[in-house]
Amino acid sequence: MLYIKVPASTSNLGPGFDSIGMAVNLYLELEVCENETWDIHHFGEAIADLENNENHYIRKYCKYFFEKFNLEARCFSIVMHSDIPLARGLGSSGSALIASLEIINYFYGLKLSKEEKVRLLSEIEGHPDNVAPSILGGVVVGYYNKKQHITKTLQVPVIEWPILVVIPNYELQTSVARDVLPNELAYSTAVEAGAIGNMLIASLYAKDYVTAGHMMQQDMYHEPYRKHLVPHYQFVRDAITGDCFAFLSGAGPSIFVVCSPDHFNENFRALNLLQNCEVKHIQVDVNGVISYEK
Protein backbone atom coordinates (compact mmCIF):
# COMPACT_ATOMS: atom_id res chain seq x y z
CA MET A 1 0.00 0.00 0.00
CA LEU A 2 1.25 3.47 -0.91
CA TYR A 3 0.78 6.37 1.52
CA ILE A 4 0.84 9.93 0.12
CA LYS A 5 0.69 13.23 1.99
CA VAL A 6 0.48 16.48 -0.01
CA PRO A 7 0.50 19.91 1.67
CA ALA A 8 -1.80 22.73 0.61
CA SER A 9 -0.31 25.86 -0.88
CA THR A 10 -0.93 29.56 -1.20
CA SER A 11 0.27 31.33 -4.30
CA ASN A 12 1.33 34.86 -5.22
CA LEU A 13 1.96 36.14 -1.66
CA GLY A 14 0.53 39.37 -3.01
CA PRO A 15 2.78 40.68 -5.82
CA GLY A 16 4.40 37.38 -6.87
CA PHE A 17 1.70 36.61 -9.42
CA ASP A 18 2.01 33.07 -10.83
CA SER A 19 5.59 32.89 -9.57
CA ILE A 20 5.74 32.72 -5.73
CA GLY A 21 4.08 30.08 -3.55
CA MET A 22 4.20 28.68 -0.03
CA ALA A 23 3.34 25.23 1.31
CA VAL A 24 1.21 25.15 4.46
CA ASN A 25 0.15 22.49 6.95
CA LEU A 26 -3.23 21.56 5.56
CA TYR A 27 -3.05 18.18 3.85
CA LEU A 28 -4.45 15.77 1.31
CA GLU A 29 -3.65 12.22 2.44
CA LEU A 30 -4.17 9.01 0.47
CA GLU A 31 -3.72 5.29 0.96
CA VAL A 32 -3.54 3.57 -2.41
CA CYS A 33 -3.38 -0.01 -3.65
CA GLU A 34 -4.07 -1.67 -6.98
CA ASN A 35 -7.59 -2.94 -7.54
CA GLU A 36 -9.76 -4.52 -10.22
CA THR A 37 -11.96 -1.42 -10.38
CA TRP A 38 -11.72 2.20 -9.29
CA ASP A 39 -12.85 2.48 -5.67
CA ILE A 40 -12.36 5.84 -3.91
CA HIS A 41 -13.55 6.61 -0.39
CA HIS A 42 -13.58 10.17 0.93
CA PHE A 43 -13.09 11.37 4.50
CA GLY A 44 -13.03 14.92 5.79
CA GLU A 45 -15.58 17.67 5.37
CA ALA A 46 -13.62 19.30 2.53
CA ILE A 47 -14.12 16.36 0.14
CA ALA A 48 -17.17 14.60 1.61
CA ASP A 49 -19.32 15.42 -1.43
CA LEU A 50 -16.93 14.08 -4.07
CA GLU A 51 -18.14 11.11 -6.09
CA ASN A 52 -16.23 8.14 -7.43
CA ASN A 53 -16.80 8.62 -11.14
CA GLU A 54 -14.80 9.40 -14.29
CA ASN A 55 -14.77 13.12 -13.44
CA HIS A 56 -12.94 12.57 -10.16
CA TYR A 57 -9.71 14.60 -10.15
CA ILE A 58 -7.52 11.64 -9.24
CA ARG A 59 -9.04 9.42 -11.91
CA LYS A 60 -8.81 12.13 -14.58
CA TYR A 61 -5.19 12.92 -13.84
CA CYS A 62 -4.19 9.26 -13.67
CA LYS A 63 -5.78 8.77 -17.08
CA TYR A 64 -3.83 11.77 -18.35
CA PHE A 65 -0.55 10.24 -17.12
CA PHE A 66 -1.40 6.83 -18.60
CA GLU A 67 -1.55 8.57 -21.98
CA LYS A 68 1.36 10.92 -21.32
CA PHE A 69 3.76 8.08 -20.51
CA ASN A 70 2.13 5.50 -22.80
CA LEU A 71 1.25 3.23 -19.87
CA GLU A 72 -1.22 0.39 -19.61
CA ALA A 73 -4.22 1.66 -17.63
CA ARG A 74 -4.78 0.24 -14.15
CA CYS A 75 -7.39 0.77 -11.43
CA PHE A 76 -6.80 1.65 -7.82
CA SER A 77 -8.52 1.49 -4.47
CA ILE A 78 -7.98 4.79 -2.65
CA VAL A 79 -8.87 6.07 0.78
CA MET A 80 -8.65 9.87 0.78
CA HIS A 81 -8.68 12.34 3.64
CA SER A 82 -8.34 16.08 3.14
CA ASP A 83 -8.59 19.24 5.20
CA ILE A 84 -7.81 21.42 2.16
CA PRO A 85 -11.09 23.19 1.30
CA LEU A 86 -12.07 23.13 -2.37
CA ALA A 87 -12.06 26.28 -4.54
CA ARG A 88 -10.73 28.50 -1.75
CA GLY A 89 -7.33 29.43 -3.19
CA LEU A 90 -5.40 26.82 -1.21
CA GLY A 91 -4.21 24.58 -4.02
CA SER A 92 -6.75 21.77 -3.69
CA SER A 93 -6.59 20.91 -7.41
CA GLY A 94 -2.80 21.14 -7.41
CA SER A 95 -2.60 18.72 -4.47
CA ALA A 96 -4.78 16.23 -6.36
CA LEU A 97 -2.59 16.61 -9.44
CA ILE A 98 0.53 15.92 -7.37
CA ALA A 99 -1.08 12.92 -5.66
CA SER A 100 -2.01 11.44 -9.04
CA LEU A 101 1.55 11.73 -10.29
CA GLU A 102 2.82 10.13 -7.06
CA ILE A 103 0.51 7.17 -7.71
CA ILE A 104 1.76 6.73 -11.27
CA ASN A 105 5.38 7.30 -10.28
CA TYR A 106 5.23 4.57 -7.62
CA PHE A 107 3.13 1.86 -9.25
CA TYR A 108 4.85 2.17 -12.63
CA GLY A 109 8.38 2.64 -11.27
CA LEU A 110 9.04 5.90 -13.12
CA LYS A 111 11.54 7.12 -10.48
CA LEU A 112 10.89 10.79 -11.22
CA SER A 113 12.94 13.29 -9.24
CA LYS A 114 11.25 16.20 -7.47
CA GLU A 115 12.65 18.54 -10.12
CA GLU A 116 11.15 16.41 -12.89
CA LYS A 117 7.79 16.40 -11.09
CA VAL A 118 7.84 20.19 -10.79
CA ARG A 119 8.68 20.59 -14.48
CA LEU A 120 6.01 18.15 -15.65
CA LEU A 121 3.26 19.59 -13.47
CA SER A 122 4.20 23.20 -14.25
CA GLU A 123 3.63 22.39 -17.91
CA ILE A 124 0.15 21.14 -17.06
CA GLU A 125 -0.70 24.05 -14.74
CA GLY A 126 0.97 26.71 -16.87
CA HIS A 127 2.84 28.09 -13.84
CA PRO A 128 4.78 26.58 -10.91
CA ASP A 129 3.51 28.61 -7.94
CA ASN A 130 1.12 25.97 -6.53
CA VAL A 131 2.75 22.68 -7.44
CA ALA A 132 6.37 23.65 -6.70
CA PRO A 133 5.89 24.53 -3.00
CA SER A 134 3.63 21.51 -2.43
CA ILE A 135 6.33 19.27 -3.90
CA LEU A 136 9.41 20.97 -2.47
CA GLY A 137 8.06 22.52 0.72
CA GLY A 138 8.61 26.02 2.13
CA VAL A 139 8.46 29.23 0.10
CA VAL A 140 9.35 28.77 -3.57
CA VAL A 141 9.95 31.25 -6.38
CA GLY A 142 9.32 29.74 -9.79
CA TYR A 143 9.58 30.58 -13.46
CA TYR A 144 7.97 28.72 -16.36
CA ASN A 145 8.59 29.47 -20.04
CA LYS A 146 5.89 27.80 -22.11
CA LYS A 147 7.55 28.30 -25.49
CA GLN A 148 10.91 26.88 -24.46
CA HIS A 149 9.55 24.40 -21.86
CA ILE A 150 11.87 25.80 -19.20
CA THR A 151 11.03 25.57 -15.49
CA LYS A 152 13.23 27.07 -12.79
CA THR A 153 12.55 27.14 -9.05
CA LEU A 154 14.38 28.44 -6.01
CA GLN A 155 13.47 27.98 -2.36
CA VAL A 156 13.75 31.16 -0.29
CA PRO A 157 13.74 31.61 3.51
CA VAL A 158 10.41 30.76 5.12
CA ILE A 159 8.38 33.41 6.91
CA GLU A 160 9.08 33.26 10.64
CA TRP A 161 6.23 35.48 11.82
CA PRO A 162 2.89 33.86 12.77
CA ILE A 163 0.51 33.30 9.86
CA LEU A 164 -3.29 33.21 9.88
CA VAL A 165 -5.62 32.20 7.08
CA VAL A 166 -9.21 33.39 6.82
CA ILE A 167 -11.27 30.78 4.95
CA PRO A 168 -14.82 31.83 3.97
CA ASN A 169 -17.72 29.43 3.62
CA TYR A 170 -18.12 30.10 -0.11
CA GLU A 171 -16.14 28.99 -3.15
CA LEU A 172 -14.52 31.02 -5.91
CA GLN A 173 -13.58 29.16 -9.05
CA THR A 174 -10.15 30.06 -10.44
CA SER A 175 -11.61 30.42 -13.94
CA VAL A 176 -13.94 33.16 -12.70
CA ALA A 177 -11.10 34.96 -10.93
CA ARG A 178 -8.94 34.71 -14.07
CA ASP A 179 -11.64 36.24 -16.25
CA VAL A 180 -11.57 39.57 -14.40
CA LEU A 181 -7.85 40.16 -15.01
CA PRO A 182 -6.79 42.69 -17.65
CA ASN A 183 -5.19 41.58 -20.90
CA GLU A 184 -2.52 44.27 -20.62
CA LEU A 185 -0.80 46.53 -18.10
CA ALA A 186 0.68 49.92 -18.84
CA TYR A 187 4.48 49.85 -19.03
CA SER A 188 4.89 52.10 -15.98
CA THR A 189 2.48 49.90 -13.99
CA ALA A 190 4.37 46.75 -14.96
CA VAL A 191 7.68 48.29 -13.89
CA GLU A 192 6.27 49.30 -10.51
CA ALA A 193 4.59 45.91 -10.02
CA GLY A 194 7.87 44.14 -10.77
CA ALA A 195 9.76 46.33 -8.31
CA ILE A 196 7.25 45.47 -5.58
CA GLY A 197 7.76 41.75 -6.20
CA ASN A 198 11.53 42.16 -6.17
CA MET A 199 11.35 43.99 -2.83
CA LEU A 200 9.20 41.20 -1.39
CA ILE A 201 11.85 38.58 -2.21
CA ALA A 202 14.66 40.77 -0.88
CA SER A 203 12.70 41.36 2.33
CA LEU A 204 12.19 37.62 2.86
CA TYR A 205 15.92 37.03 2.57
CA ALA A 206 16.58 39.93 4.96
CA LYS A 207 13.85 38.68 7.33
CA ASP A 208 12.43 42.20 7.27
CA TYR A 209 8.80 41.19 7.63
CA VAL A 210 7.48 44.72 8.02
CA THR A 211 8.80 45.62 4.57
CA ALA A 212 7.71 42.22 3.22
CA GLY A 213 4.22 42.77 4.61
CA HIS A 214 3.92 46.19 3.03
CA MET A 215 4.96 44.71 -0.31
CA MET A 216 2.41 41.90 0.07
CA GLN A 217 -0.30 44.55 0.31
CA GLN A 218 0.85 46.57 -2.72
CA ASP A 219 0.11 44.04 -5.48
CA MET A 220 -0.79 45.57 -8.84
CA TYR A 221 -1.19 42.37 -10.91
CA HIS A 222 -4.37 40.77 -9.61
CA GLU A 223 -5.79 41.89 -6.23
CA PRO A 224 -7.17 45.23 -7.49
CA TYR A 225 -9.21 43.30 -10.07
CA ARG A 226 -10.30 40.40 -7.85
CA LYS A 227 -11.09 41.96 -4.50
CA HIS A 228 -14.69 42.73 -5.50
CA LEU A 229 -15.20 38.96 -5.87
CA VAL A 230 -14.30 38.50 -2.18
CA PRO A 231 -16.95 40.17 0.02
CA HIS A 232 -14.90 39.87 3.22
CA TYR A 233 -11.70 41.25 1.65
CA GLN A 234 -12.09 44.80 2.94
CA PHE A 235 -13.39 43.57 6.31
CA VAL A 236 -10.12 41.71 6.84
CA ARG A 237 -8.00 44.66 5.76
CA ASP A 238 -9.94 46.96 8.11
CA ALA A 239 -9.88 44.51 11.04
CA ILE A 240 -6.13 43.94 11.27
CA THR A 241 -4.01 46.29 13.36
CA GLY A 242 -0.35 46.86 14.16
CA ASP A 243 2.29 45.18 12.01
CA CYS A 244 -0.17 42.79 10.39
CA PHE A 245 -0.50 42.34 6.63
CA ALA A 246 -3.12 40.60 4.46
CA PHE A 247 -3.14 39.24 0.91
CA LEU A 248 -5.39 37.04 -1.21
CA SER A 249 -4.45 33.37 -1.26
CA GLY A 250 -4.06 32.55 -4.92
CA ALA A 251 -7.18 33.60 -6.76
CA GLY A 252 -9.08 33.77 -3.45
CA PRO A 253 -11.36 33.81 -1.63
CA SER A 254 -9.16 32.79 1.32
CA ILE A 255 -6.98 35.54 2.75
CA PHE A 256 -3.60 35.08 4.43
CA VAL A 257 -2.46 37.35 7.22
CA VAL A 258 1.19 37.64 8.29
CA CYS A 259 1.26 39.07 11.78
CA SER A 260 3.88 40.44 14.14
CA PRO A 261 4.17 38.20 17.24
CA ASP A 262 3.49 41.31 19.35
CA HIS A 263 0.09 41.79 17.71
CA PHE A 264 -0.93 38.19 17.07
CA ASN A 265 -3.47 37.66 19.85
CA GLU A 266 -5.40 40.86 19.23
CA ASN A 267 -5.62 40.19 15.50
CA PHE A 268 -6.60 36.57 15.97
CA ARG A 269 -9.48 37.70 18.19
CA ALA A 270 -10.51 40.45 15.76
CA LEU A 271 -10.56 38.16 12.75
CA ASN A 272 -12.62 35.57 14.61
CA LEU A 273 -15.41 38.14 14.78
CA LEU A 274 -15.88 37.83 11.00
CA GLN A 275 -19.08 36.05 10.08
CA ASN A 276 -19.16 33.01 7.77
CA CYS A 277 -15.39 32.57 7.97
CA GLU A 278 -13.02 30.15 9.68
CA VAL A 279 -9.73 31.54 10.98
CA LYS A 280 -6.79 29.15 11.31
CA HIS A 281 -3.31 29.66 12.76
CA ILE A 282 -1.15 27.71 10.34
CA GLN A 283 2.49 26.81 9.83
CA VAL A 284 4.70 26.67 6.77
CA ASP A 285 5.20 23.08 5.62
CA VAL A 286 8.92 22.68 4.92
CA ASN A 287 8.88 19.06 3.74
CA GLY A 288 6.64 19.09 0.68
CA VAL A 289 4.97 15.94 -0.60
CA ILE A 290 5.95 12.65 1.03
CA SER A 291 5.08 9.15 -0.12
CA TYR A 292 6.18 5.73 1.04
CA GLU A 293 5.13 2.09 1.11
CA LYS A 294 3.21 1.05 4.23
Rank of each mutant, 00 (worst) to 15 (best):
V139E: 13
P128R: 00
G138L: 11
G138E: 10
V118C: 03
I124K: 05
P157Y: 12
T151K: 00
L136N: 14
D129R: 04
H149G: 01
H149C: 10
G138I: 09
P157C: 12
E160A: 07
G126L: 10
D129V: 07
I150F: 10
K117V: 04
A132V: 06
K146G: 03
V141Y: 13
K114N: 02
D129S: 11
R119A: 03
E115T: 04
I159E: 07
K111G: 13
K152W: 12
E160P: 00
H127S: 08
T151W: 01
Y143R: 01
S134R: 09
P133S: 12
G142I: 02
V131A: 14
L120E: 05
L112C: 06
L136H: 12
E160K: 10
Q148P: 02
S134D: 09
G137H: 03
I135N: 00
K114R: 07
I124H: 00
G142N: 04
E115K: 00
E125C: 15
P128V: 00
G126I: 00
T151P: 00
V140G: 15
H149L: 11
V139M: 13
I124Y: 10
E160M: 06
K146H: 13
E116D: 12
E125W: 12
H149S: 13
T153N: 14
K117Y: 00
P162L: 10
Y143I: 06
Q155K: 15
E116H: 05
P162Y: 09
E116W: 07
G126V: 06
L112H: 10
A132D: 08
H127E: 02
I163N: 07
V165M: 13
N130H: 05
I150C: 01
K146R: 15
W161N: 11
Q148K: 15
L164A: 10
I159A: 14
I135Y: 09
I150M: 07
L121G: 04
I163M: 14
